[in-house]
């Protein structure tokens, strides 16, 4: 009862409230209440997620499993960030009588420093590395093996050229009346016609799937999100 019916009831009531609030204007205020509840739950999810991360990495370190050193670095970074953020280390408020009143990410604070000089450069570097791997993959994997792959390759060439000045320059001799034959023109057609048609088909399919799954969840037919009995 507590493991299955009660969670389903919460889901069903919340779902019905949101549907009613959407379709019945006088009940629109209900979704604001649901929003406030969701805010609290989402904040709690941060706590649960943090605790789970802590527990998993601690287990890995204590068992000396392969790569435990990385877990130690993760935990150290996690604890340092949490402590300087929670205790507003280095935050200077506008009023010295209320030193805790300043914003936790105020410029010059320890958390601001960590974000500015550790988190931002690290994550920026990681994503910048993608350019190197994309180049390597382009050489090794992008082959015209069949008709579909050749079409994909042709579209990729046109878009790659059309999204830079190279495409404009290469087809600069084409008169304005035939701009659809330039690389930027062909790029616009690929994105605006072929891509849009494909995307719309996918979106409609997904929307129908979401509606069907939501209905199954609301009616209690699908309870897979609650986990199995053994969990």
């Amino acid at each position: 009862m507590l493991k299955s019916t009660f969670p389903w009831l919460i889901v069903a009531v919340t779902g019905c409230v949101m549907i009613a609030a959407f379709f019945v204007p006088p009940l629109a205020e209900w979704k604001n209440e649901a929003g406030a509840w969701f805010e609290i739950l989402a904040a709690m999810a941060f706590v649960v997620g943090g605790a789970n991360l802590f527990a998993q990495h601690l287990k890995k370190i204590s068992a000396r499993r392969a790569g435990w050193g990385y877990s130690a670095v993760t935990l150290f970074s996690f604890v340092v960030t949490l402590v300087v953020g929670l205790f507003k280390v280095g935050v200077i408020g506008e009023d010295p009588n209320y030193p805790w009143a300043g914003h936790y990410q105020a410029e010059g604070s320890a958390l601001w420093w960590l974000y500015q000089f550790a988190y931002q450069p690290l994550i920026g570097t990681m994503f910048a590395l993608l350019a190197f791997y994309v180049a390597s993959a382009a050489f090794r994997a992008f082959r015209a093996k069949n008709t579909e792959a050749t079409m994909l390759l042709t579209a990729a060439f046109i878009v790659l050229l059309g999204r830079t000045y190279a495409g404009t320059w290469l087809t600069s001799a084409v008169p304005d009346d035939y701009s659809a034959l330039t690389f930027p023109g062909m790029t616009a057609i690929i994105l605006g016609v072929f891509n849009t048609a494909g995307q719309r088909a996918i979106m409609i399919g997904i929307a129908l799937g979401v509606a069907a799954t939501s209905l199954k969840v609301l009616l209690g037919v699908d309870r897979s999100y609650l986990g199995s009995d053994g969990d």
Binding site: A138, R140, F157, L160
Partner: peptide, 13 residues
């Protein structure tokens, strides 16, 4: 970078 990627795709093929 785009020109390089196009060149690499051509060479790979």
């Amino acid at each position: 970078a785009h020109l390089l990627i196009i060149g690499l795709i051509v060479l790979g093929n």
